[in-house]
C-alpha cells in the first residue's frame, strides 16, 4: 500500500500537466490546482484551484491537507475600506450548481511551515475535504513566483 502511494506521488511529481485535468468526486469536480514557486521555506506557500458542484445540494470545502506543509489552512484575502487583510476561512462554501474559485486576491489555501522548497514545474498532492462529498486528492502544479493562473493552455471548465 505504501509502495502504491509512493508510486502515485512520484507519478504526480513527474506529470504536472495533470493539474489541468479535472478530478471527480461524486458531483464535485476539482481542476486547475496550482501553486507558486517558493523562495526558500520560510514564507507560506499558496494553493489555488477551481471547484464545480454539479449536484443539487450545497457543499463546502472544510479543510486541506498536504505532506509539504506543517500547517495548511484556508484563508481569504478581503479588502475592506481599502485595507487588505487575510482572515482564516472556516470553510469555503460550494453551493449547488455553482463554480467556486480559490484564486489570487480571494480564497486560497495557505501552506504554513513548508517542508520543502516548491520548484516551478514540479507538483505536489493536496487532499481536499468536503463536508458532504468527502475527500479527494488532487495534483497541484507549481508555477513561477509571479504566476497568476494555472498555466493550462485551455480552460476546460
Amino acid at each position: 500500500m505504501n509502495r502504491l502511494l509512493a508510486a502515485t506521488l512520484l507519478s504526480l511529481v513527474s506529470s504536472p500537466v495533470l493539474a489541468c485535468d479535472a478530478v471527480q468526486l461524486g458531483t464535485i469536480e476539482v481542476e486547475q490546482a496550482w501553486s507558486r514557486a517558493s523562495i526558500g521555506t520560510s514564507r507560506p506557500g499558496v494553493v489555488y484551484l477551481t471547484i464545480r458542484n454539479a449536484g443539487t445540494e450545497d457543499d463546502a470545502l472544510v479543510s486541506i491537507d498536504t505532506p509539504i506543509s506543517g500547517m495548511p489552512m484556508l484563508h481569504e484575502t478581503v479588502v475592506t475600506d481599502g485595507i487588505a487583510s487575510m482572515p482564516h476561512a472556516m470553510e469555503v462554501p460550494v453551493p449547488a450548481d455553482a463554480t467556486v474559485a480559490l484564486e489570487p486576491g480571494g480564497y486560497h489555501g495557505m501552506l504554513m511551515d513548508l517542508t520543502q522548497v516548491l520548484k516551478e514545474g514540479e507538483s505536489f498532492p493536496v487532499t481536499l475535504t468536503f463536508r458532504n462529498a468527502g475527500e479527494v486528492t488532487v495534483p497541484v502544479s507549481v508555477q513561477g513566483v509571479g504566476a497568476t493562473d494555472a498555466g493550462c493552455s485551455e480552460n476546460n471548465g
Binding site: R36, V46, A84, M86, G105, V145, G146, A147
Partner: peptide
Amino acid sequence: FTWCPDICPTTLSAIS
C-alpha cells in the same frame, strides 16, 4: 510585505 502568499505576489505580478 513579502511574506504573504496571496495578494503581494499577485499585486507585484500585476505591476510587472
